[in-house]
Write a protein that binds this DNA or RNA. Structure first.
Lengths: 175, 175
DNA sequence: TATTGTTATACTCTATAACTATA
DNA sequence: TATAGTTATAGAGTATAACAATA
């Protein structure tokens, strides 16, 4: 578990308005927002999504969401759609279109389950495995670029703090 | 600027599939995802959004986005819509509906600008100021609850790392 | 010409509810 | 009864393109 070292004490910022920020070329105030975690989370997610779009998506026409699904299917061959939905914490009905898209692009197949005629077993095709390898390489490069402003330790610490907040244990930091 | 102290070296996790995770009650694998910052960002944002919905939104019928806009308007009286759009990094056309909603609820007004007949000056109403005070109190409580699993230093460190990533300077940590 | 606010439109992501075929 | 997948539908949230009024 990474820990954090305080160096500079964050001076409490003035929470009120900067008199006349509205007209001139002055900088405008964000009020309490800079102290709000949710604000920084959203800003960071928008930034990383745009970086992903310019790098990974530009080359491979994929979204972070679809690539995540593809990775989970690859890591769990034969997974059913309902269990995939649970894993990604989205509704079963949302998964249908995701799987439609990945199957439509020839990256995965829906196979009939040998044990349950209602269920589909999801598996990557050969093409899907090749595409995943390419996409993962691009994605790791994109993440490296995006986090270039952080040290490796800071990056690990950040992931660790986020993992603690969203509650899923982070296998990468189990000692 | 907060720094980070390494304590446990994160052992590189196996990136490949866990043989037969698909059928039984076994735990399923997330592949490379636990090493991916974007994945943890999204997960955390979903978690904090749900917490916000159960706490702040349940009491005041507001979204994080609308509350953020309200705070920026409050902090910059007389702000125009285009500058608000720039500040929040969304399109001007997106702002229109946001302002419509806030105005429709009586929280802000569009006033004609004295200097530019095209432009609207956005201002909080008395009711808007009162609502903002209530909402901010709830929001700060919500953030405290959500980050209860972190120490105050860890929370500051997290915000600092995120602020560095999305590039906006974080006024709360200027020494 | 450029900018402010606006409208019409569309796209993505997501959820709810109801359906079918199994179990 | 309950579950797996599906469909129809709707609601956010966002963007693009074009427009009128004004700068």
């Amino acid at each position: 578990m990474a820990r954090v070292l305080k160096t500079a004490d964050a001076a409490a910022p003035a929470a009120d308005a900067p008199a006349a920020a509205a007209q001139g070329g002055q900088e405008l105030s964000y009020g309490l927002l800079p102290q709000v975690l949710g604000y920084h989370l959203r800003r960071t997610q928008v930034a990383i999504f745009r970086h992903f779009s310019r790098t990974v998506a530009a080359a491979e026409d994929i979204t972070p969401g679809l690539l995540g699904m593809l990775q989970v299917i690859a890591a769990n061959p034969g997974l059913g759609q309902s269990r995939l939905a649970e894993a990604m914490e989205v509704d079963r009905s949302t998964i249908v279109k995701v799987v439609d898209q990945l199957e439509g692009r020839g990256l995965i197949v829906r196979q009939p389950s040998p044990h349950d005629k209602r269920s589909h077993c999801l598996r990557l095709t050969d093409e899907g495995r090749a595409a995943l390898r390419r996409m993962q390489a691009l994605m790791l490069q994109h993440e490296d670029e995006f986090t270039r402003v952080l040290t490796a330790e800071e990056r690990r610490c950040l992931i660790d703090l986020l993992a603690r907040l969203h509650g899923r244990t982070n296998p990468a930091s189990r000692s």
